[in-house]
Design a protein around this nucleic acid. Structure first.
Ligand SMILES: [Mn+2]
Ligand SMILES: [Mn+2]
Ligand SMILES: [Zn+2]
Ligand SMILES: [Zn+2]
Lengths: 138, 138
DNA sequence: AAAATATTTGCAACAAAGTTGCATACTGTT
DNA sequence: AACAGTATGCAACTTTGTTGCAAATATTTT
């Protein structure tokens, strides 16, 4: 496991540091999306806020994690499961945010539908975020 | 026009104040979504930041405007055109954010498609935000 | 394995965004 | 015109995110 994590970092031309390994591990362990604050908490504030910001940013650039837009102005991150690479994200799946427990799921098997836009609009990517009650809270 | 604006406020049981009228007018004049900062600028900073925050919050509660989720952690607001009321929003249309000019459009005539969620997930509302190149920037 | 080089980290200082309490000003009502 | 209710602006504060830089750590070279 520890080795797997290091492997992923190396594959992405990132030097293997404690904070990066730990944060990446958190994402692999978690079944749901994580916010910056979640990471601070789950690491017992062992790492500086700035380091976490920079790590998340790096991971997004490398195509290791993707961001999830939310209505309440908080940024969430989750592992990319598709073949995302440096600068080329391809996470065209639906996200679900539970109104009760707040958990955010990547529904990897539900792909975002084609949307018929008006003339003149050329889509580059489409985000679909559903909210409601999740399987654990019903 | 001025009277229309006052009418809308009264209809929503809001007292008619200069800032509320001006901000609501801005939304009616604008063809695109507005951020808090846009409103500060377009009003020449005549109103306190706090007043703008509180006005936007009030308008959202009353169903006069709705928020639009964005990937970059900025909150956008736009007029509700459907029959939204106090606490009951019904803005099930697609939004489009232009990667070039940054303009955010409510595509009022494009309704969000039905999404087939996995067993156990009950959707309450669904946000669809497409991004790409808009009609003005192509 | 040690030295040299490249990269990352943590700190400090800052900037931007959002919140709260309270006195003053304004709106709608009597 | 006076009153009661509400909204505004200010100050003070919190939370979130950014930047420069020296010290620490990781990788490469010898
Ligand atoms: Mn996802
Ligand atoms: Mn809209
Ligand atoms: Zn839940
Ligand atoms: Zn555009």
């Amino acid at each position: 496991m520890k080795n797997d994590i290091a492997e992923i970092l190396k594959r992405n031309q990132l030097s293997v540091t404690e904070s990066r390994a730990k944060i990446l591990e958190l994402f692999h362990e978690s079944r749901s999306a994580l916010a910056h604050a979640d990471i601070e908490n789950k690491t017992d504030e062992s790492y500086d806020r700035v380091t976490i910001y920079r790590t998340l940013q790096t991971f997004v650039e490398k195509g290791i994690i993707h961001t999830i837009p939310t209505a309440d102005n908080s940024v969430l991150y989750a592992l990319c499961k598709d073949e995302c690479t440096q600068g080329k994200h391809n996470d065209n799946h639906v996200h679900f945010i539970c109104d009760i427990c707040g958990t955010t799921y990547c529904l990897d098997h539900i792909t975002v539908p084609e949307i018929n836009l008006p003339k003149g609009f050329t889509p580059h990517c489409t985000d679909v975020v559903a909210s409601g009650i999740c399987k654990n809270c019903k």
